[in-house]
Amino acid sequence: MLAHVYFGPGQAEWRNHPDPIIPDDISPETFGPTALIAHRLKLSDVEKGYKIFKNAAETDALKVVLSA
């Protein structure tokens, strides 16, 4: 049994860090849903897409998008 354990909100005090957490030049190209897409494939290549996503550590796949 754990005794004297405290689970709090766990937020970091960001004002103590000199580097900005969020840069001022955020744009949809650098910070948005399209920035997460690593691979774009045709729907007919769905099997290839599953293999890419299955081996995400080797293929650097965050999101695989299939289109018609």
Rank of each mutant, 00 (worst) to 15 (best):
D60F: 10
H39P: 00
E29Q: 04
A56E: 08
I26C: 12
D60I: 07
L36V: 00
K48Q: 10
A56D: 09
H4N: 14
V5T: 12
L36D: 07
A57D: 05
A38C: 06
D25N: 14
D24S: 13
F31R: 15
K42H: 14
D24T: 08
P20T: 15
L66G: 02
R40D: 00
P28L: 11
H17Y: 12
P28V: 02
E47V: 15
I22E: 06
Y6T: 11
P28F: 07
P20W: 09
I22A: 13
V46G: 04
E58T: 05
D19E: 09
D25P: 06
L41K: 02
D25L: 13
L43R: 01
I52W: 01
S27Q: 10
P18G: 05
H17D: 06
P33K: 08
P18R: 04
N55C: 12
I22W: 09
V64T: 02
E58D: 13
I37L: 07
F7A: 15
I21R: 07
G8D: 11
F7Q: 15
A3P: 03
I37D: 04
G49Q: 13
W14V: 14
I22T: 14
T34K: 15
H39L: 02
F53C: 01
R40V: 03
P23N: 07
S27R: 14
G8Y: 11
L62S: 03
K48R: 11
P23A: 02
L2I: 11
I21A: 14
L66I: 09
D19Q: 10
D19W: 04
Y6L: 10
D19F: 07
L2C: 11
G49L: 05
K63N: 05
K48A: 11
D24F: 05
Q11E: 13
H4S: 09
F7C: 15
D60A: 10
V5M: 12
P33V: 05
H4T: 09
G8A: 14
G32C: 03
R40F: 00
F31V: 10
I22N: 12
Y6C: 09
D24P: 05
G10L: 09
L62F: 04
K51L: 06
E47F: 01
P33T: 07
L36T: 02
V46T: 05
A68D: 13
A3K: 11
K54L: 02
W14N: 12
G49E: 02
N16L: 14
S44F: 06
R15A: 12
R40K: 06
F31C: 05
I21G: 01
V65Q: 10
L2D: 11
A57Q: 04
T59N: 00
I37G: 01
V46I: 13
V5I: 15
L2V: 13
D24W: 04
L2A: 15
A38Y: 00
A38D: 03
L36F: 11
G10V: 12
Y6D: 03
L41E: 07
L62G: 00
G49I: 09
K54E: 08
E47L: 15
G10A: 06
L41A: 04
V65R: 07
G32H: 06
